[in-house]
Design a protein around this nucleic acid. Structure first.
Length: 708
DNA sequence: TCGCAAGGTACATGGGGACC
DNA sequence: GGTCCCCATGTACCTTGCGA
C-alpha cells in the first residue's frame, strides 16, 4: 500500500451548518488590497478566512455569533462596493459554486480556523486567508535587540486535486520597498499578521515576503532521527496537523490519505544487475585512454591534477596522460569558472569549439575539496566526471557501452524524445495555433534517439519553427502538444515521450502526487521512545533477568548488558540505554521488543527494520515502485504510475526531498514495465536511481554537444 | 561533477483608478 | 466613457541546497 499526499474528505454538512455561518465576501478589485479580510478576524472575531486571490473570499463565524445584517453593515460602511452573502451550505449547487471540486475551499476554510494554545509551542496562523505553521526555531533574531528580522513558515494548503502541500514561505524585515504587502508582529498578541490601515508602524519595522540575498530556507521532507527532529520536518508537521484536524474538526470532516493499492516493487536480482549495469568503467576508459589538460596552470590546478592522477591510478587502475587536448582520447580539462574569465576579460575556454572531442570540464574554484591526496573511498566528484566522459564518448560513437543494452532482451527498437523551449527572439515568437489546436507563443527544439536492440543510438533533432519535414516529426510534435494540453488542467508536465511503436507513443508525466510513509506510526514510535525519557535502572536489570529465562540463547548478551547497567546511575535516559543495548545486534533488537511487549518500555522504534515495514511503510519513499491506475483522473484511462526514491540501502535517518509520482500514459496499451530497469542504474545520479529512463541522459548530452 | 526537488523571483497579464 | 498607466497576481523560469 502506497500512501500519497492526495486526500479524500468526508463532510458532515448538517453539523457544520449547525455550528457555523459561512459568508462569501465579494468586492470589485482585489480584496487583498483592502483590510476586509484582516478586519474580519481582528474586529469581528471571525473564526477563519479563506482566500486565494481575486475578488472572492470565504469567512467562517460561529453560528449566530454575529448576524448577517450586522456584519454586512459594518463591512459596507467601510467598503460601499463590497457585498456579503451568507451561504446555504446544505445546497449542493451553492457548494459546487463556492467550494469547487470535493468542497476543497470549505475544507481549507475550516482548517484555517484551527488555533492551538500558544504554550504548546506549536503555532498556526491564518494570515490573510492562508494557513501557516511556524516553529520558534525558524526565526532569526537580531543579536542586540533580540527582535526577529527574518523567519519562515510552512504554508499548509490543499491544492486543486486535494493534494496536501507544505511549502516554505520566508519573510524578512522590509528595508527598501515602499509598496507591496506588509506584515508585522502584533505588539499585543504576538501574532504575525497583515498590517492594517490603522497600524502606525515605521516602514523598516514591517516585514515583507522575501529572503535575504539569494539564500533559500529549506525544511527536510522526512527526518526520523528523533521525535524532535521529526516534529520539525514536513511530514512531522503534517502528522501533527492531521491530528489537530481530527481533534478540532473531527466531527465536521474526516481526512484520509490516498492508498494506492497493488503497488509493485521493481527489484532486480544481483545477477541481473551485474548483467546489465555492472560494467567496468576502467575497461571502457582504457580503450581510448584518459588525458588531463591543465589550462589554468596554477598551484591549485596542479594539486587538482595530481589528485586526479592519484585517484585514477588507485581506484581505477588507469594511468592518465598529461598534455594538450587529444581528439581520440577522453579529456579532462581543468579551467577557471566562468566568472573568472569575465572579470579578467579573457577568452573563455567554456565557449571553445570542442566538436569532435570528448571533454569534461572541471573548474578549479569549485573543487577546493580535491586538493589533498586520494582518500579511503573514491571521490564522488571524480567518479561522476569519469561517468560523464564515458557517456559523452558513447554519444559520439553512437553506441551504448555503459550498459548491456543487448541483455535487456529488447527485441525491438525504442525511441526516446525530449523537447526544450527555444529562446525567443527579441519581442517573442508570434502567436500560432499548435497541433493540439491551442494558441501559443512557444517554440520547441525536439531531440530524439532511436536505440536498436544492439545498443546503437541514432540521434536526431528538429524544431517546430517550420512545417514538419516528414510524418515522423509531425507525429512527435502532435503527440507532445496534445499530451501537454491534456495535462494542463491538472497542472502536470510532460517530461518526455517513449515508444517502440510510433502508433503507441507513451508520455511520461510529472504529477503533483508525492508518496509518504505511515506518519502516524512514525509519530507514535518516536514519541514513545523519546531519547530524553527517564528510565529506572533496576527495572531494566530486572527485565534482563526475565529475558534470560524467556530467551536463554541471549544470556551472554543479557549478562554483559546487566553488568554495564550496574555501573550506571539509578536513573538514566532512553537515549543512553539505547546506546548500551546496541540496536545493531540481533540480540539488542530482541531485547528491545521483549521490553516493549512485556514491560511496556519502548526504547527503539526500529523504524528502518524490515520486520516493521508493514507498520511504518517507510518503503513508500524508497527504491522504485509502481502501480496501475485504471481510472486516471476519473477519465477511464489506464496509466502506469511509478516513483523513484533513494535506495533503501543508502537510507540514513532523513530524506531531504519527497519522491514524486510520475505517470505513464499511452495511446494504446502501456508497455512501460519493460523499461523499469532503465531507471535502476546509478550512473546518472551517483549512488541513487534516476527518475527518467537513462536514455534521456544521453539525449541531454547530445542536445548539449551536438545541437548547438 | 550533475540530477533532482523545491525555494525564490521576473514578468506578462488584465482589472481598476486617474485623468481627460 | 475612453484611454493610459499602475500594480497585484499567478506562472514560468531561474537558482539554491543537497547528496553521492
Amino acid at each position: 500500500m502506497i500512501l500519497t499526499n492526495k486526500f479524500h474528505v468526508e463532510y458532515d454538512f448538517a453539523l457544520i451548518d449547525r455550528d457555523y455561518d459561512i459568508f462569501l465576501v465579494e468586492k470589485p478589485g482585489y480584496l487583498d488590497k483592502t483590510n476586509i479580510l484582516d478586519l474580519a478576524t481582528q474586529r469581528f472575531l471571525a473564526r477563519a478566512v479563506q482566500y486565494s486571490f481575486g475578488r472572492k473570499a470565504l469567512l467562517l463565524f460561529d453560528k449566530n455569533d454575529i448576524s448577517e445584517k450586522q456584519f454586512r453593515e459594518a463591512i459596507e460602511t467601510d467598503y460601499p462596493d463590497a457585498t456579503v452573502k451568507k451561504l446555504d451550505i446544505l445546497n449542493e449547487d451553492i457548494r459546487k459554486q463556492s467550494f469547487y471540486y470535493q468542497n476543497r475551499l470549505l475544507l481549507q476554510l475550516l482548517v484555517n480556523s484551527i488555533r492551538v494554545p500558544r504554550m504548546e509551542g506549536f503555532s498556526y496562523n491564518n494570515l490573510t486567508g492562508k494557513f501557516f505553521y511556524g516553529d520558534p526555531s525558524w526565526r532569526s533574531r537580531d543579536r542586540k535587540t533580540k527582535q526577529p528580522y527574518s523567519m519562515y513558515f510552512l504554508e499548509i494548503s490543499f491544492d486543486p486535486g486535494m493534494y496536501l502541500n507544505l511549502d516554505v514561505r520566508t519573510f524578512r524585515k522590509n528595508k527598501y520597498s515602499k509598496s507591496g504587502r506588509f506584515y508585522l508582529i502584533d505588539p499585543n498578541t504576538g501574532i504575525f499578521r497583515r498590517k492594517l490601515k490603522e497600524d502606525n508602524v515605521r516602514q523598516e519595522d514591517l516585514f515583507t515576503e522575501a529572503s535575504f540575498g539569494s539564500s533559500h530556507n529549506t525544511v527536510e521532507y522526512l527526518d526520523f532521527g528523533s521525535f524532535e527532529d521529526f516534529s520539525k520536518c514536513k511530514l512531522g508537521v503534517m502528522e501533527q496537523f492531521l491530528q489537530d484536524v481530527k481533534k478540532y474538526l473531527g466531527q465536521y470532516v474526516t481526512l484520509s490519505a490516498e492508498e494506492r493499492e497493488g503497488d509493485q516493487c521493481y527489484k532486480e536480482s544481483k545477477k541481473e544487475k551485474d548483467n546489465l549495469s555492472g560494467v567496468d568503467y576502467a575497461v571502457i576508459l582504457d580503450k581510448l585512454g584518459v588525458n588531463i589538460v591543465d589550462v589554468c596552470r596554477t598551484e591549485v590546478s596542479e594539486r587538482i591534477v595530481s589528485r586526479l592522477v592519484g585517484e585514477l591510478q588507485r581506484f581505477y587502475g588507469i594511468t592518465p596522460q598529461l598534455g594538450e587536448l587529444q581528439e581520440s582520447m577522453y579529456n579532462i580539462r581543468v579551467i577557471h569558472k566562468q566568472e573568472y574569465y569575465e572579470e579578467q576579460q579573457l577568452p573563455d575556454p567554456h565557449s571553445d569549439d570542442l566538436h569532435g572531442y570528448i571533454v569534461q570540464h572541471m573548474t578549479q574554484e569549485e573543487h577546493t575539496d580535491l586538493l589533498g591526496a586520494p582518500g579511503e573511498k573514491e571521490s564522488p566528484v571524480i567518479h561522476k566526471i569519469l561517468v560523464e566522459l564515458i557517456l559523452k564518448g558513447d554519444v559520439r560513437a553512437g553506441q551504448i557501452s555503459i550498459y548491456n543494452w543487448e541483455k535487456l532482451c529488447a527485441n525491438k527498437d525504442w525511441t526516446f524524445v525530449q523537447r526544450q523551449r527555444l529562446k525567443a527572439p527579441e519581442g517573442g515568437f508570434e502567436v500560432i495555433t499548435n497541433s493540439a489546436g491551442k494558441t501559443t507563443r512557444n517554440r520547441f527544439l525536439y531531440s530524439t534517439v532511436n536505440i536498436s536492440p544492439d545498443g546503437r543510438m541514432n540521434f536526431r533533432s528538429f524544431d517546430d519553427t517550420e512545417i514538419a519535414a516528414d510524418g515522423f516529426e509531425e507525429k512527435i510534435r502532435y503527440t507532445f502538444d496534445t499530451y501537454e494540453d491534456k495535462q494542463r488542467r491538472g497542472q502536470k508536465d510532460v517530461e518526455g515521450l517513449v515508444f517502440s511503436d510510433i502508433e503507441n507513443i507513451h508520455a511520461i508525466i510529472r504529477t503533483k502526487e508525492k508518496t509518504m510513509p505511515n506518519t502516524s506510526a512514525i509519530w507514535k514510535g518516536l514519541k514513545a521512545t523519546n531519547v530524553r525519557d527517564a528510565i529506572i535502572r533496576d527495572v531494566v536489570i530486572g527485565a534482563l533477568g526475565a529475558y534470560k529465562e524467556f530467551n536463554p540463547a541471549d544470556d551472554m548478551y543479557a549478562d554483559s548488558l546487566a553488568a554495564v547497567l550496574g555501573e550506571q546511575q539509578p536513573t538514566f535516559t532512553k537515549g543512553e540505554l539505547k546506546k548500551l543495548m546496541n540496536m545493531r545486534t540481533k540480540a539488542g533488537k530482541r531485547f528491545n521488543r521483549f521490553l516493549h511487549n512485556e514491560y511496556g518500555i519502548w526504547v527503539s522504534p526500529e523504524i528502518k527494520d524490515s520486520d516493521f515495514s508493514d507498520e511504518y511503510l517507510l518503503e513508500n519513499v524508497t527504491d522504485i515502485k509502481y502501480f496501475i491506475d485504471e481510472d486516471t483522473d476519473g477519465e477511464g484511462i489506464t496509466s502506469l504510475n511509478y516513483y523513484v526514491g533513494p535506495t533503501k540501502a543508502s537510507l540514513q535517518l532523513s530524506i531531504h526531498n519527497a519522491s514524486i509520482v510520475r505517470q505513464v500514459q499511452a495511446e494504446e496499451d502501456v508497455e512501460f514495465e519493460e523499461l523499469l530497469p532503465l531507471m535502476a542504474v546509478d550512473f546518472v545520479r551517483i549512488g541513487s536511481y534516476t527518475v527518467l529512463p537513462f536514455p534521456f541522459k544521453y539525449l541531454r548530452e547530445w542536445a548539449n554537444i551536438d545541437c548547438e
